[in-house]
Simulated scan of single mutants.
Amino acid sequence: MNIGVIIIIVISLISIAGFSRPELIYKYQFNAWQIKNRKEYIRWISHGFFHADWVHLAINMFVLWSFSKAVIYYFMRSLPGNSSIVFLVFFFSAIVASSTFSYFKEKNNYNYNAIGASGAVSAVVFASILYDPFRIIYLYFIPIPGIVLGIGYLVYSRIMSKRNVDNIGHDAHFWGAVYGFVFPILLNPSLLGHFFNELLAIF
């Protein structure tokens, strides 16, 4: 059983427990005001283990399952250290990194709350795009090259973040995606050259 599946099982079990125990979500959801003023730093990580409902959980875990195995393989081939441990560090640091912008944006807003592993899942998807930018990703059963979907995703997340018309954490999606692209490059800068070589290979 690879580390991606273990993460999925753990997050699923905790999320399911949270469905019937709202006090858990209240205690562990991301709230920048609580982190700043009450020093509840565990919220940086713990909010990624809870989801709003079955659909929210199912989508995130399905996407994570779809991409984690490939990313772990890529890490094994290109990054130093044990690939499972590196992926574990990558995933949970992505939860923190994807929420950092929201922390500074909402640190004086007591009413801002967020849950879900979407930011970290976005990081996994974009790590996959770094390694294989033309891998086909299916969006509503429509095949789209990863790099095309990725650019569209970033633009959409940025626009929706500025509009702020729904309860979706578009900032976390955007910065999680950026982190997913940058993290492997920080450990192996040659991957940036690999990415551009992959892009140029089609010409």
Rank of each mutant, 00 (worst) to 15 (best):
M1I: 13
I3M: 12
V5C: 06
I7M: 10
I8D: 12
I8N: 12
I8Q: 07
I11S: 07
S12Q: 02
I14S: 01
I16A: 04
F19M: 11
S20L: 13
R21L: 12
E23L: 15
L24P: 03
I25D: 00
I25Q: 04
I25S: 05
K27N: 08
K27G: 01
Q29A: 12
Q29C: 08
F30Q: 06
F30V: 04
A32V: 02
A32R: 03
I35Q: 08
K36C: 12
N37W: 14
E40P: 07
Y41K: 13
I42V: 10
R43D: 01
I45E: 00
I45F: 05
I45C: 02
S46H: 00
S46P: 05
G48F: 00
F49R: 09
F50G: 02
F50C: 08
F50H: 05
F50P: 03
D53V: 06
W54F: 11
W54C: 03
L57K: 02
L57C: 05
L57I: 02
I59N: 02
N60S: 13
M61Y: 03
F62R: 08
V63M: 13
V63F: 12
W65Y: 12
S66D: 11
S68Q: 05
I72D: 06
Y73K: 15
Y74C: 05
F75V: 07
R77C: 09
L79I: 04
P80W: 03
S83G: 09
F87H: 07
L88W: 15
A94K: 02
I95R: 01
V96P: 00
T100I: 14
S102G: 05
Y103C: 12
F104N: 06
K105Q: 14
E106N: 11
E106G: 02
E106K: 10
N108P: 04
N109S: 14
Y110I: 13
N111H: 13
Y112D: 02
Y112K: 07
G116Y: 02
G119E: 05
S122E: 00
S122R: 00
V124W: 01
V125G: 09
F126T: 09
I129P: 04
I129W: 06
L130F: 00
L130N: 00
D132S: 10
F134W: 06
I136F: 10
I137Q: 03
I137N: 04
F141K: 11
I144H: 06
I144Q: 11
G146W: 00
I147D: 15
I147M: 13
V148T: 11
V148Q: 01
I151P: 03
G152K: 15
Y153E: 03
Y153I: 10
L154P: 00
S157V: 11
S157H: 09
R158I: 12
R158G: 14
M160C: 15
M160V: 08
S161V: 00
K162S: 15
K162D: 15
R163P: 01
R163I: 05
V165N: 10
I168C: 04
F174L: 15
W175D: 03
V178S: 08
V178Y: 06
V182G: 02
V182T: 04
V182M: 13
L186V: 11
L186I: 10
L187G: 10
N188K: 10
P189C: 12
P189F: 08
L191A: 07
L191I: 04
L192H: 02
L192Y: 03
G193D: 08
F196W: 09
F196V: 03
N197K: 08
N197W: 11
E198A: 11
L200C: 09
A201Q: 07
F203E: 10
